[in-house]
Simulated assay, not measured.
Amino acid sequence: MVAIKRWFLHTFTPPWRWRLAFPAAVLKDIEIAVKQSECQHRGELRFAIENTLAPTWVWRGLSARQRATEVFSTLRVWDTEENSGVLIYLLLADREVHIIADRGIARRVHQTEWDAVAHDMQEAFRDGDFRRGSLEGIERITRMLTTHFPAVADNLNELSNKPVIINS
């Protein structure tokens, strides 16, 4: 995307725009899906939605992927006992999804697998189906984590299951 066009998009997108894609019922469905997912494996999922980036960040060339990495750190997704956190990050203005996995999971699941899930989520979002895209993405991530990090008897919930809305 041309830098100036991207800057205008981030600067003039209304701050409430995310509510159209993710009304309260969809956010609740995501929270329930994350909770159910985490009962099946030892991974910890966080779902983060950011409407736009600060115009100065866009002007300086901050990519959605770079921002996802910052959010991974800010939300402390890395701070789990088994290094098994996974962030699903959506930047609405850029229509991009990025999945960042902590080092414990990254050793077992290659980034190309996460990118395939993110791509399919983006396709559903382009069709305007944010609920389906989110829930199917969580379902696919659940299957990967169940394979590599199956649940144990004392499966702790280390991170909040509630989606986070980031206001830049």
Rank of each mutant, 00 (worst) to 15 (best):
E31D: 06
G85R: 10
L45I: 13
G137D: 13
H41G: 03
H41V: 01
P150Q: 03
I49F: 02
P55L: 02
I30N: 12
A93F: 09
G43D: 01
S134H: 04
T52E: 10
T13H: 08
E31N: 04
C39M: 08
A64S: 15
W18S: 08
D129E: 11
E44D: 03
I105K: 07
F22E: 08
P14K: 13
T142P: 01
A25N: 03
E136T: 07
V71P: 05
W57K: 12
Y89A: 04
G133D: 07
A101D: 06
N157D: 15
A151Y: 08
W57D: 13
A101P: 06
E96G: 01
P150E: 04
V26P: 02
N155A: 07
A153K: 12
M121V: 12
G43K: 00
R126C: 00
F8N: 09
A106P: 01
I32Y: 03
A33T: 11
T11S: 15
W59V: 04
A3D: 12
E31M: 07
E50I: 04
D154G: 10
R46Q: 08
C39T: 14
M1N: 10
T11Y: 05
A93Q: 05
L9P: 01
K5N: 11
F12P: 10
L87V: 11
E123K: 10
E31C: 00
W18K: 01
R42Y: 05
K162R: 14
T13K: 15
R95Y: 09
C39E: 12
R143Q: 10
G85A: 08
D115H: 07
A54G: 02
H110G: 02
A101L: 07
Q111E: 15
R46W: 05
K28A: 12
H148W: 14
E158G: 11
I105Q: 01
R17M: 12
E81Q: 09
V77H: 04
T69R: 15
S37P: 03
D127P: 02
P163N: 05
G43Q: 04
K35Q: 09
E82H: 14
W18Q: 07
L92C: 11
A151G: 08
D79N: 15
R107H: 09
Q111Y: 11
F72H: 08
F8S: 09
I141D: 01
W78T: 01
G137R: 13
